[in-house]
């Protein structure tokens, strides 16, 4: 495997954790903007803006994680792959599982607190 492909593979390995990080930052950043602009009472799609938008971020992040899992299974779980590639695929799949739980876990507070108190 070439070095440039290694960089891509490294990103791929971390991709599900990066999805969690992006969802986390998006939820936190968006909450900060909504609260600083006093938009928390705005109604979107029949609900208050924060729970709806954070639920959307969570669902989008889970969909991305699922897409990465499917791609990993198709690309790297072949019996012909060498041990390092299989290790990468297995670590990616386990990280995907952890990331998915973390994404849901981090989104849950939006169901409890929907204001900027």
């Amino acid at each position: 495997m070439s070095n440039t492909r290694f960089v891509a593979l490294l990103l791929y390995l971390f991709s599900t954790l990066l999805v969690w990080a992006a969802a986390f930052l998006a939820a936190y950043g968006w909450t900060a903007v909504v609260c600083s602009r006093r938009w928390e009472d705005t109604v979107v799609l029949g609900g208050r803006i924060l729970p709806i938008s954070i639920a959307a971020i969570t669902v989008f992040a889970l969909a991305l994680t699922a897409a990465l899992v499917i791609s990993a299974v198709r690309r790297h779980m072949s019996a012909h792959d060498a041990a390092p590639q299989r290790l990468v695929a297995r670590v990616l799949l386990t990280l995907a599982f952890v990331s998915a739980i973390a994404v849901v876990w981090n989104g849950l507070p939006a169901l409890i607190f929907d204001g900027c108190a």
């Binding site: 986390f24 876990w105 981090n106 507070p109 204001g115």
Partner: peptide, 18 residues
Amino acid sequence: PRLSMSFFSAASMAVAIP
């Protein structure tokens, strides 16, 4: 905001797992 802090509270508990 409480919601903002809740994200970090959740993440702080989650990091205990690994």
